[in-house]
Design a protein around this nucleic acid. Structure first.
Length: 312
RNA sequence: CGCGGAGUAGAGCAGUCUGGUAGCUCGUCGGGCCCAUAACCCGGAGGUCGGUGGUUCAAAUCCGCCCUCCGCAA
């Protein structure tokens, strides 16, 4: 089947979904409709901000639907007479009746190599758990989250320099490669797929606001991995003199100062180092509540008497 | 008008309460020392103190309004 003749509905919300959406459009796939989360109030000023996917839909004149509850509000998709629904980071559970609507089927791009890391935050959890590779899985959508047959997988390497921002960049490029390559094959029924091994399933739950408070009980590598998984947004933090100190970038220290857990054991032009139970961590980029993000040298420069303070 | 913090040299900060010549550290530039250096020493450049109106002999500082950034709440 020529891809121009396949009627596709794309469901997505975030920036990474919008990247994939635009790739599909520029590669001549026939997107007949976009479904995205409702526009939300953003920031202190509560400015109503359109989702990135909506912006792409508008740019290309594709109708965009933003139901508050897709579970109850999806009849409009019938009128689109679509053949395939493609979802990527949409953000709502899609009812079975809607999944069954397209003539060919409904598929999802997921930011991990399934069956590992089913759920809302696979990219973050891969970093937090210190994985050295992850990837994208193209799969059948079922009502049970991320549990359907797997049609294609593509791996990406995770470097020690990666954080959530950079890994999302890799994942979105990988996801667009996967969908551009496999969508035509799927449409022609050439992908037989593979069941997920339920014994190997793991979950990547949503990151909660409590998770942003870094724990001093972590060992140094876990501590650094949490920072990688939380950066650049929302960022993990500790408290310094009861003020939020967001840490964007850190690494396991080469040096081994002795000190109490959470103590700033060095603060000079060479490093800003805190002690943990199994070693030390150098803080590289940070932001104090009310201030701007800066590197550790600038921070140390303007804040005297840091050494010996205890972070909590 | 949701609550709070902040805006001073390229960067991070002090000075504001108590008005009186613009300050610290880092960076940068020049010089010196050294086998050498991101180390050390000497010197220089760089700021209409977020904007605007007011009070005053005099405003970074006190008062009014506005803009921007950040944390919280949503």
């Amino acid at each position: 089947m020529d891809k121009e003749n396949i009627r596709i509905v794309f469901m997505g919300t975030s920036e990474i979904s919008s990247y994939v959406l635009e790739k599909l459009i520029s590669n001549k796939f026939n997107i007949v409709g976009v479904v995205s989360q409702p526009d939300k109030e953003v920031g202190r000023k509560k400015i109503i901000t359109p989702t990135p996917c909506k912006l792409i839909a508008n740019k290309y004149g594709i109708p965009c639907f933003q139901p508050i509850r897709i579970k109850k509000e999806f009849e409009f998709i019938k009128d689109l007479n679509c053949d395939i629904i493609v979802t990527f980071a949409y953000g709502q559970i899609i009812p079975q009746e809607l999944l069954d609507m397209p003539s060919i089927g409904s598929i999802n791009l997921h930011g991990s190599i399934l069956p590992k890391y089913r759920g809302a935050a696979p990219v973050q959890w891969a970093l937090i758990n210190g994985e050295i590779k992850t990837g994208v899985t193209l799969m059948e959508m079922t009502y049970k989250m991320d549990a359907g047959r797997m049609y294609a997988k593509k791996y990406v390497d995770i470097s020690v320099e990666d954080n959530a921002t950079t890994l999302f960049e890799k994942i979105k490029k990988c996801a667009s490669d996967v969908i551009l390559e496999y969508l035509p094959l799927y449409a022609d029924g050439k992908l037989k797929g593979e069941e997920q091994d339920e014994a190997k399933v793991s979950f990547a739950r949503m990151i909660k606001s409590e998770d942003e408070k870094l724990s001093l009980d972590y060992n140094s590598s876990t501590f650094v991995n949490w920072i990688r998984g939380l950066s650049d947004v929302p960022g993990g933090y500790l408290l310094l003199d009861n003020q939020k100190l967001i840490i964007y970038k850190a690494k396991i220290s080469d040096q081994n100062f002795s000190g109490k857990i959470g103590e700033i054991v060095n603060a000079d032009k060479n490093s800003l180092t805190i002690a943990l139970k199994d070693g030390c961590v150098d803080i590289l980029e940070l932001k104090l509540q009310g201030k701007n993000r800066c590197d550790y040298k600038s921070f140390v420069n303007g804040h005297k008497n840091l050494k010996g303070k205890i972070l909590s």
